[in-house]
């Protein structure tokens, strides 16, 4: 088990977002997290990635607690073992594609030249090498997501967290991003948590987990007692 969550609970003020979520991911597994809007998918992936701290419960990466780490230690984890990819807006507007991709490596102490070489090779693998010197505002949404994916993968993370990574893209652009994501994850043995509300996108995963009102829906689509009104 590379990543585990036990009894995760998280609220925003009086609004409960997670009400006790327990799950485990095997190394190299691609897990889709689905469920209706507001069910807690983003909150879950943020807790797993160490971006948010749960109110109760624990997150373990390779058996070590993540949720009790300091903010600095969690940031370090996200620059190394964890990669994150969101719906949009994660690239630094002032930097070129290559600089954006090189950034995590440089933050981790890699030299500029070496970081640029690695960045170019990842842009190449994602089919956007020709955009290396363009800024995010000068390329399409699908191209931006491929650059963002290159940036998420450049540190060769063990776990990639992707929250609606194709949510802002049209079908074909979304498929291209996802095709790359899944292919590269399989090549590198990367474990992936993929949040999506689209069945078609969940089809790329090995396994699907449905959230409903902040808890895992055991029927696979079905219903908590609350929803049934029983």
């Amino acid at each position: 088990m590379i990543l585990q969550a036990r009894g995760l609970v998280r609220s925003y003020g009086a609004t409960p977002a997670l009400r006790g979520v327990t799950l485990g991911l095997a190394e190299g597994e691609i897990l889709a997290v689905t469920g209706p809007s507001g069910c807690g998918k983003s909150t879950l992936i943020h807790c797993l990635a160490g971006i948010l701290r749960p109110d109760a419960g624990e997150v373990l990466y390779l058996g070590q607690r993540v949720d009790t780490l300091s903010e600095a230690a969690r940031s370090k984890l996200r620059r190394g073992a964890f990669g994150v990819l969101f719906q949009f807006g994660q690239l630094v507007a002032e930097l070129t594609a290559a600089e954006n991709v090189a950034l995590p490596l440089m933050l981790a102490g890699t030299g500029r030249r070496e970081a640029r070489t690695a960045a170019l090779s990842w842009l190449e693998r994602l089919g956007v090498a020709e955009l290396a010197d363009q800024r995010p505002g000068e390329v399409s949404g699908g191209q931006q997501q491929r650059v963002a994916l290159a940036r998420a993968l450049v540190t060769e993370p063990r776990v990639l967290f992707a929250d609606e990574p194709t949510g802002a893209l049209d079908t074909l652009a979304g498929e291209q991003v996802l095709g790359h994501l899944v292919r590269l994850a399989r090549e590198q043995g990367t474990t992936v948590v993929l949040v999506t509300h689209e069945p078609r996108i969940a089809g790329y995963a090995d396994r699907e987990l449905t959230l409903r009102d902040g808890v895992i829906d055991a029927t696979g689509m079905g219903l908590t007692d609350k929803a049934v009104g029983a």
């Binding site: 899944v182 069945p199 089809g203 790329y204 995963a205 029927t219 696979g220 689509m221």
Partner: peptide
């Protein structure tokens, strides 16, 4: 109806996954 829907959905998801594997 719900039991049927859940089972049918499972069959659909499985097929969707197979087809996605074929195309990727």
């Amino acid at each position: 109806a719900r039991t049927y829907l859940v089972a049918q959905r499972r069959a659909h998801v499985e097929r969707l996954r197979e087809l996605t594997a074929v195309k990727t």
